[in-house]
Lab assay of single mutants.
Amino acid sequence: EGLCAVCGDNAACQHYGVRTCEGCKGFFKRTVQKNAKYVCLANKNCPVDKRRRNRCQYCRFQKCLAVGMVKEVVRTD
């Protein structure tokens, strides 16, 4: 048992190249599959942790990419 590289929640295994929780795994997968574009309403440096991970989708997705999650391994079929 480890911690999610994105939000610090409990994470049992790796998803898309990085140890993440189920919440961040699902968020990343949905974002890539929908080709979603998010906008940060602040300064693009919002805190992303277990308690606040749902407040800014833009910053959460940027953190997913920054920690090494790989868009190309998300299935789109």
Rank of each mutant, 00 (worst) to 15 (best):
R60G: 01
C13L: 13
C59F: 00
Y16G: 11
Q62Y: 01
K63I: 01
C59Y: 01
N43L: 09
K63A: 10
R75T: 15
F27G: 00
Q62S: 12
N54Y: 15
A66L: 11
C59S: 00
A66D: 14
M69V: 04
G26E: 05
Q33R: 04
N35G: 10
L3R: 15
N35P: 08
R51E: 13
R60V: 12
G68S: 04
C13G: 13
V67F: 02
K63M: 10
M69E: 02
K37G: 09
K29C: 04
F28H: 07
A42R: 04
V74P: 03
Q14N: 08
D49E: 12
N10S: 03
V70C: 11
N54F: 06
R55D: 09
N10I: 06
R55W: 10
A66W: 04
Q14Y: 15
P47M: 04
K37W: 12
L41V: 12
N54V: 08
V32L: 02
L41R: 09
Q57G: 09
K29Y: 03
V73G: 10
T76W: 08
T20E: 02
D77C: 09
K29L: 12
F61V: 02
Y38P: 01
N54Q: 10
V67C: 07
A66P: 01
N35V: 02
V70G: 11
Y16V: 05
E72M: 08
P47S: 09
C40W: 01
V32R: 15
V39C: 06
K29G: 05
T76V: 11
G26A: 09
H15Q: 03
V48G: 02
R60L: 13
F28D: 01
V32I: 04
A36D: 11
V18W: 02
K63G: 02
R53G: 13
V67T: 09
T31Q: 06
D77W: 05
R52M: 11
Q62A: 08
D49F: 05
H15S: 09
A36R: 08
N43W: 11
P47E: 08
F28A: 08
Y58L: 02
V74G: 11
Y16L: 08
E72D: 14
C13S: 13
Q62G: 04
K71P: 14
Q14P: 11
C4R: 02
Q57M: 15
Q14W: 12
V67Q: 00
T20G: 03
P47W: 05
Q62D: 06
R19N: 14
A42C: 02
G68D: 02
R51G: 11
Y16E: 14
G68M: 08
Y58D: 07
N45G: 03
D77I: 03
K29M: 15
G26R: 06
K29V: 10
D77L: 08
R75Q: 13
A42V: 08
N35I: 07
E72K: 14
Q14F: 15
K44G: 09
L65S: 03
F27I: 01
E22Q: 13
C24R: 00
K50Y: 12
G23C: 13
R52W: 12
D49W: 05
C64R: 01
N43E: 05
L65V: 08
V67M: 10
C13H: 14
K44V: 03
T76D: 14
R60E: 01
R52Y: 15
L65F: 05
G23S: 15
A66C: 05
G23W: 10
V39E: 09
V32K: 02
L41G: 07
D9W: 09
K37V: 07
C13Q: 15
R30C: 08
F61G: 00
A66I: 08
G26M: 04
R75D: 06
A42K: 15
E22V: 05
R53A: 13
M69L: 09
K71I: 05
T31I: 11
C64M: 10
R55G: 10
P47F: 05
L41F: 08
K34R: 04
K44E: 03
D49S: 03
C21A: 01
H15P: 14
K34V: 10
T76Q: 06
E72S: 11
K50E: 14
R52I: 05
D49T: 12
R19V: 11
C64Y: 02
T76P: 11
V18F: 07
C21R: 00
T76S: 11
V39W: 12
V18Q: 06
A66Y: 01
C46I: 01
K37Q: 10
R19L: 12
Y16W: 03
V73H: 12
K50V: 11
G17Q: 13
